[in-house]
Design a protein around this nucleic acid. Sequence first.
DNA 1: AACTCGGGGCA
DNA 2: TGCCCAGAGTT
Length: 213
Amino acid sequence: MTKKKIEQILATLESRYGQEQCGLDFKSPFELLIATILSAQCTDVRVNIVTKDLFENYKTPEAILLLGEEALLTKIKTCGLARTKAKNIILTCHRLLIEYNGTVPDQMEQLLTLPGVGRKTANVVMSNAFNIPAIAVDTHVFRVSRRIGLAQGKNVLEVEKELMKNIPKDKWSQAHHWLIWHGRKCCTARNPNCSGCMLRSLCNFGRGNNKEA
DNA sequence: AACTCGGGGCA
DNA sequence: TGCCCAGAGTT
């Protein structure tokens, strides 16, 4: 895949999805951690609405614990899986307070032990809060990247490397969201809308011998 | 790798 | 109604 083709793909995605609100608003590693836990199975748009209100008055582990699980639940209700998330956030706040003096750890292994924090959340916190270069590869990013040839790797880690190599660093965050939007709206897992895809002239998937890498 | 949990959206 | 997730946790 040539550099020019990669640029064309990114430019096309941007023209289509550049207007969509994407990305989580955050002012501190703690806010980003909580917002990312909330974003499971839920769009950034909705998370931003909820956290804008929540972080107005509750932006530290202490404050969240003072608020309590039931009140927290009420505030995050619209994010889905709210009971589980509320429980995990309370547990995580306890852990942060006791084990990390109220701060967010900057090591992958430490983040992964926190309740409600999995591969993706840890990755997002590492890359955005602590500036460790990374692109979080979720199912959409994985599928779409391989189909359009932006990343030819076999597994998640290899695809992540390919993306980091092929996408200019200042576009990582945006490109991540464009790929997700495209995966949801067009390049779906089943019955992808190849005929209506704005990338069809640049993409070999959907022209007979479909292969995702 | 294959499951379960989980609740709001959307057809 | 029924089907689908911009995950996490467990087996």
